[in-house]
């Protein structure tokens, strides 16, 4: 446990003072506010809620921004040569993988926390459903953590941060777009006789499991979905790094 916190503290300090973290936090907070008040039609909706205008954009924002945080997690260790140094210490692989992941998660949560002015605005303007607000933030955090897990895994696979970013972003954006009605329409035209295939592809969409959180519902199925992807990503990361030594 002490190794986990040592790695977490070290990694968080390294992340926090890096240009990427500053860029991520600035861009995420700026774009989420911009989208809320423009494309999100916050004032036109005339409701004291962030469900449609604010939380709606988070999966797409995370798909584009979170891989920038995840891409450096292992590629930098490999390029610096410090991965070998870590392997030579009297510690297991799990605390290292978990500690690095948790440090990046803390940064993502910090980004979410920095959107508090929007929450304050909505509370000031009207009566807010706090349950819906809290579940929206939980869902948003889970989406971010899921995309982080995926990009950390790619980071363990490849040396190039650019390749990690491109692959992670592609996968994450696809998982967001798969649930869109336009894409569903296209899939139906491609597979006109096979609703099963269309439904299966649609079920891979992250939005399907996120939408409940936006409406104030914390569904077990959704928590298992996100938790499952995170666990599989982290296990695969640890497994790959262990196999590197073989």
């Amino acid at each position: 446990m002490s190794t986990f916190f040592t790695v977490l503290r070290h990694e968080f300090c390294s992340l926090l003072f890096s240009p990427i973290a500053v860029a991520y936090l600035t861009i995420f907070v700026f774009l989420s506010a911009l989208l809320t008040f423009t494309a999100g039609n916050f004032f036109i909706l005339n409701e004291a809620t962030l469900s449609y205008s604010f939380f709606r954009w988070h999966p797409l924002l995370y798909a584009l921004l979170v891989p920038a945080i995840g891409m450096r997690s292992w590629t930098q260790e490999k390029s610096q040569g410090t991965l070998e140094l870590l392997f030579a210490q009297p510690i297991g692989m799990s605390p290292i993988v978990l500690g690095k992941y948790a440090a990046a998660c803390v940064l993502l949560l910090l980004g979410l926390a920095l959107t508090f002015p929007l929450v304050a605005t909505v509370i000031w303007l009207g009566k807010v459903d706090m349950g819906e607000l809290i579940s929206g933030y939980i869902g948003s955090a889970l989406v971010a953590a899921t995309f982080l897990g995926i990009s950390c895994y790619f980071s363990a696979l490849f040396r190039s941060q650019v390749i990690v970013y491109l692959l992670s972003t592609t996968l994450c954006v696809l998982s967001v777009l798969l649930g869109s009605t336009q894409l569903e329409g296209e899939l139906v035209s491609i597979f006109p006789r096979s609703r099963l295939i269309v439904d299966f592809i649609g079920s891979l969409s992250i939005n399907q499991y996120y939408v409940g959180f936006r409406r104030g519902l914390i569904e077990l199925q959704s928590v298992v979905y996100f938790g499952g992807i995170i666990c599989v990503s982290l296990l695969a990361t640890a497994q790959h790094l262990t196999r590197r030594r073989l």
């Binding site: 610096q80 040569g81 140094l85 009297p90 297991g92």
Partner: peptide, 22 residues
Amino acid sequence: KPIQAKQNLGYLPERAPLYEDF
């Protein structure tokens, strides 16, 4: 028993890897 074994070890890798930000 990697953890027990490495308690007795100090290792200087080739090219002396370091964390540049610290």
